[in-house]
């Protein structure tokens, strides 16, 4: 018996008929066709399926789609605006924070979530913020650098705006 749900995904709302035990990651990938959200373990350990749900970073493999009814989601496909990369995406590209790229969508959203909570996170905070996102290729160094640089840039923009 399917459950009818409505999801707001990257600003547009859609309806889906999902299985009662279906995970949000499957709904996104298989029903919504948004394959940018990856699946690496299905037990909430790798972070590849991370999305921002109602403002909070969650592993979409541990969310029942039925429980997400009505939620607003941000997936990797919604990070760039009108084809323009976000500053964090640009930093990932410029710093070389990407190799195979399979962890990248989850990492980006973890980074965005961190930056929504802290203006100038230190290295320890950045590492904690992505500790639930496993990366097998990069060794994390360049990912941490990309997030740090973006934070710095954003707070400079903010402080100069305040200065005026």
């Amino acid at each position: 018996m399917r459950v009818d749900i409505e999801l707001g995904i990257n600003g547009s709302r859609s309806r889906f008929a999902v299985e009662p035990d279906e995970r949000l990651v499957s709904t996104l990938r298989d029903r919504a066709g948004l394959t940018g959200t990856k699946q690496g373990c299905k037990i909430g350990e790798c972070g590849a399926c991370s999305v921002i749900m109602d403002g909070k970073l969650v592993p979409s493999c541990l969310v029942l789609s039925a429980s997400a009814d009505g939620a607003d989601l941000l997936t990797v496909e919604g990070v760039a605006q009108d084809g323009n990369l976000s500053d964090l995406q640009q930093a990932f590209v410029a710093e070389g924070a990407i190799q195979c790229g399979y962890c990248t969508p989850g990492m980006l959203l973890a980074g965005e979530y961190l930056l929504s909570r802290y203006q100038r996170p230190d290295t320890a905070q950045i590492k904690e913020a992505i500790a639930g996102n496993l990366c097998r290729c990069t060794g994390y160094t360049k990912i941490v650098a990309a997030i740090r640089k973006t934070a710095k840039k954003r707070s400079l923009v903010k402080s100069s705006a305040q200065g005026r």
Binding site: G44, L57, V63, E128, A131, G132
Partner: peptide, 9 residues
Amino acid sequence: IGSVQIRNL
């Protein structure tokens, strides 16, 4: 506990 993702759920 867990990661921030886990703590959010």
